[in-house]
Design a protein around this nucleic acid. Structure first.
Length: 236
DNA sequence: CTGGGGAAGGGGCCC
DNA sequence: CGGGCCCCTTCCCCA
């Protein structure tokens, strides 16, 4: 069974900035232009400031209503740069020019424009599609990695089972050799997989990592918490 | 039924 | 750009 929804949650400081629409510029909050779900006209219309908007320099409001989608998904966001330069961070020479789509920063307006025209995968809408399934990726590297899940190039010489990545094969080979390099510091158990050790460590913890919001009972695994809630928490 | 272990999948990050 | 690793998650099985 395919295991989808395996999206890592970003915890490091290097996480991509996909979230909020706001950028701090000289102490002011500048809203990035947002796209409307119902967008159907030209980018000029879609991004035209609402007549009632008195803060044209700070905010761009979609004339068709709600703005929900990431600007990165817009096929023609480039004209915005010429239309509303005042909304963009980079009004002074000290500031950088940030691509609103992928958030890379450039020292000059022309540099950013060139990036958007020639390099930015989001704004040029270069999606890389898998030929084996419907998935699309914004980078060729991500697509190639995904394709390995179809081609399974890493084959176990002992049993013939195939895997998408060498380290998956490595972990599998441990099931043949019995090697368990990850030891628990609290008991004598050892594991072949670091994640399994991590899950095991939760069993030593008095207060488990995953807690039911209703009855406050804690669980060592999120799947156990999910089971608990699906079965119907007695308190909720 | 519940909790835990084993095995495996997949995206992101770092080098 | 690719390999290796990390992290998270899921499924299956068993006590």
């Amino acid at each position: 069974m395919p295991r989808s929804f395996l999206v890592k949650t970003h915890q490091s400081s290097r996480k991509p900035h996909y979230g909020g629409p706001k950028t701090q510029t000289e102490g002011k909050t500048v809203n990035r232009p947002q796209l409307c779900e119902a967008y159907s006209g030209s980018p000029v219309e879609a991004y035209k400031p609402a007549e009632s908007c008195t803060k044209v320099n700070l905010e761009i409001q979609c004339v068709t209503g709600d703005h929900r989608r990431r600007p990165s998904l817009h096929p023609q966001s480039l004209p915005l740069l010429a239309l509303f330069p005042a909304i963009l961070p980079g009004g002074s020479s000290q500031e950088s020019f940030e691509c609103l789509d992928c958030h890379k920063e450039y020292l000059s307006f022309s540099g950013r424009t060139k990036h958007k025209q020639l390099q930015c995968e989001w704004s040029s809408k270069k999606y890389f599609s898998c030929k084996y399934c419907e998935k699309e990726y914004i980078s060729l590297g991500a697509l190639k990695m995904h394709i390995r899940t179809h081609t399974l190039p890493c084959v176990c010489k002992l049993c013939g089972k195939a895997f998408s990545r060498p380290w998956l094969l490595q972990g599998h080979i441990r099931t043949h050799t019995g090697e368990k390099p990850f030891s628990c510091l609290h008991c004598s158990r050892a594991f072949a997989d670091r994640s399994n050790l991590r899950a095991h460590l939760q069993t030593h913890s008095e207060v488990k990592k995953y807690q039911c919001a209703s009855c406050f009972k804690t669980f060592s695994r999120i799947s156990l918490l999910a089971k608990h809630q699906e079965a119907g928490c007695p308190v909720s």
